[in-house]
Write a protein that binds this DNA or RNA. Sequence first.
DNA 1: CAAATATAATAGTATTACTATCATTTTCAA
DNA 2: TTGAAAATGATAGTAATACTATTATATTTG
Lengths: 228, 228
Amino acid sequence: MKEMLSKISIQVNEKIYLKNPDTSVLGRKLVAGSIALIDELGFEGFTFRKLAKSIDSTEASIYRYFENKHKLLIYLTAWYWGWMEYRMVFGLANVASPEDRLRKAINLLTEIVKEDSTFSHINEIKLNHIILAESSKAFLTKSVDQENKEGFFSGYKALVERMSQIILEINPNYKYSHMLVSTLIEGVHHQRYFTEHLPALTDVIQGEDAISDFYKDMLFKAIKTVEK
Amino acid sequence: MKEMLSKISIQVNEKIYLKNPDTSVLGRKLVAGSIALIDELGFEGFTFRKLAKSIDSTEASIYRYFENKHKLLIYLTAWYWGWMEYRMVFGLANVASPEDRLRKAINLLTEIVKEDSTFSHINEIKLNHIILAESSKAFLTKSVDQENKEGFFSGYKALVERMSQIILEINPNYKYSHMLVSTLIEGVHHQRYFTEHLPALTDVIQGEDAISDFYKDMLFKAIKTVEK
DNA sequence: CAAATATAATAGTATTACTATCATTTTCAA
DNA sequence: TTGAAAATGATAGTAATACTATTATATTTG
């Protein structure tokens, strides 16, 4: 079983990297190390020099995998969305009602990742933590149009489209399905971040997962109700 | 009239800057120039050296006003929230019903700023454009806790609190007022940005301001309805 | 008008973000 | 198993960034 799972790997757009880090020991150490280091230092404080030191390699070697740290961040986010897609495929299979599928999808997106999977070198707990604080920096740059054209964000877009389709199954007349989904996804990241750092901007309720409850409430009301 | 208006100025937390840029010709040129340059180059491409050149001054002079470009970004966002607060005070005064006040507040937040005011050196159109792409970078850093403690985000928090109060007037039992407001604010930024750069993540509807309509619909349903 | 303050001009440092070259190690195919 | 190809390491170097410091020159203000 473990062996089977170890053969599953998340594919990301080939143009993101110079050399696929998934194909070598150094590449996997590089990615694993970058997750630990970005989580520790933040993306701005993170440099390839520090990464090289932390994995006992050299800057030059890292530059053979990624053009720059921005591309590495895009790689991590693309991997994350690929992984999320994979979790959705498994989690939503054989769930007949679109309502239940949507509920499950929201759960997957809002959950704080608490278990590291055994099938990859990537620590999904730390990666999830990075995504909350850093993922928007992957597209909030002047190179976004070019990078979008090259398909760097296709994983994210595919997920939005998939969930959008579920919403349209529930209510084919709902006009803002993509907006609703991307508002949910980015919102979850922000609210989780706010809970930790800017609690005045959110609502923390003892013993409840307010974020998950809030977004479920919000989405179903948006899709299913007519205003009183 | 012009003279009176020119005496209005937006106050920001004094700890954000080393010397108040609002008190000198150079300081105002610096801020105005930074808005133009960040809009043109993006925050990552923007440097104090380039700013100095563009306003025909020196790096050393700019460093007398701001410790670094991150503090300057915090200044710009704080100014923006102060300005938004000012617009809300005027825009919502004498509006009796909380529903109408909420609708107006959402309009102010979702509107693309199209007119530059005459009472300040700041180009609000460009600043609004910067806010969409760059404002989240002001708090998505490792220094957020310290900076929050020093009150750098109090303008943003005050606005969330103000709108949260309106929501509670409409429905005192609504549990997630702060979350709803910050989801709205950050969401508007993202959706405007997506419309321009990643349209697959949003819904663009010809001849309609889909973003404004979507958020109004979403908020009122969240606050006022019970799920069918 | 003198003193204080602000700005400009200039120079300098440490770090970042790379690129280049060559030696060494590892891989993998015949 | 060996020898070529590929990957990595070691080292060096460049341009730009992110500052700090010093001194000279304007400008403001009391």
